[in-house]
Design a protein around this nucleic acid. Structure first.
Lengths: 230, 230
DNA sequence: ATTTCCCTAATACGATGTATCGCAACAGTA
DNA sequence: TACTGTTGCGATACATCGTATTAGGGAAAT
């Protein structure tokens, strides 16, 4: 019996697992933003019927959760950081860089509790860095405060970045020059402080402004950590 | 010619303006969250064809922008606040309360630059409160830092609130008791700091934790404002 | 060899955002 | 008063989406 006589084996279904699914979804999101992620497109990229995915996730939201946790793996520092301040600073900057690599992360950050394994691991090393310096409650408050800051700051930065991209102008230049409505509103004189800020404010690098605000918040945390040393 | 003889006048199209549209959209969002807002449903609530809305907005995203700016009208304080600290504190708390009234705001906050008239007005009074105390750049940094904090904190709070609502348990109790996977993961011993936080941490009121973190950040800002008095 | 069962793919459904098109009522002119 | 142009509204249409349901076919069990 030659090869020609034997029928082809039936096409086996493409092997699949969550890792592959999440990777495909992240690739789509990196290319076209969150809105480019549809279960149908993810499935297509894996040569699979859309319904197949429901064996691995039961809702699109769960896919987003998995994507976020995958990014937390990038955020998790490889080596144990030095002191608490370095740990929190690193967490903030690593999260920011992850969001710059995966802008869609900004849309998801803080949107729901992150309870995946990698997110937990990040939480663990972060809390651990504060272990010996404060009681648990203070430590949690510190982490939450810093996290709130950088979550909000990252979201704003990505939002500005997208707006710039959409208009093709830097935010500052846009406000000053062609944003016609804004220019008109500022010209009304009803917003003197804003106007001064727009025209006289220094254009500062996004990373620098992020870092500055972060150090302020870290200073605040430091004050609370050392005040009652516990 | 009696009334009976005269034909009814032709049904005039329902009068419409942005205000009505936005109000309908906000009502829908308050009832069922952002995902309950569809142009069709907004139109239906106004007894109008869906396409009619495109005379007033050109995209669903624009409707969201209008909704957000409408909420900024609630956030704008009625009386001029006292000192800068009071101004920033009030801004934070008023935004938080607005988000508790309109939970969907948390999904939109920081998602894109807020440039509507009410948002600008809020920005104006906020910046104005810092006018005499710092140069423009410092003032902007202060506002941005505080805003980043409360934006992130509000998002987290609403996210937790929804998660609690979905499971019917307080976050703390849920972690401790029935969240089976989380309990199992903590039991592995791989997350000692987290475990301690979950089991030994005090359950604190959301508003108190928001306020505490806020005061920390305000302390930090105060330090930077007074250091170089300018 | 036959039957059972599970997994896959196909089909189906209701909903969505928005483009397009045709019409009907009004304004202005003859 | 008849006619014509214009404007803006509604209906229809389309591609897409998340997901429920169904039917089929290969693997495992008998």
């Amino acid at each position: 019996m030659t090869v020609w006589d034997r029928p082809e084996p039936p096409t086996r279904p493409a092997p699949l697992d969550r890792e592959r699914i999440v990777a495909a979804a992240i690739a789509l999101a990196d290319e076209g933003g969150l809105e480019a992620v549809s279960l149908r497109k993810v499935a297509a990229r894996l040569d699979v019927g859309p319904m197949r995915l429901y064996g691995y996730i039961s809702t699109k939201q769960e896919l987003f959760d998995l994507m976020v946790d995958e990014v937390y793996a990038e955020i998790l520092p490889q080596e144990q950081p030095g002191d608490w301040r370095e740990a929190l600073r690193a967490l903030a900057h690593r999260t920011r860089h992850a969001a710059l690599r995966h802008e869609w992360l900004a849309d998801l950050l803080g949107g729901r509790p992150a309870l995946g394994p990698n997110a937990l691991a990040v939480g663990e090393v972060t809390l651990a860095a504060l272990n010996s310096l404060a009681d648990i409650d203070t430590a949690m408050r510190a982490v939450e405060t810093v996290s709130a800051y950088f979550t909000g700051a990252i979201r704003r930065e990505i939002a500005s970045l997208r707006a710039e991209r959409a208009t093709g102008l830097s935010k500052h230049n846009w406000q000053r020059a062609s944003g016609p409505r804004l220019t008109r509103m500022l010209a009304t004189g009803r917003f003197p402080a804003l106007t001064k800020a727009v025209y006289d404010g220094t254009d500062v690098d996004a990373e620098a402004s992020f870092a500055t605000g972060l150090e302020w918040v870290l200073d605040a945390v430091a004050a609370k950590l050392t005040r009652p040393p516990v």
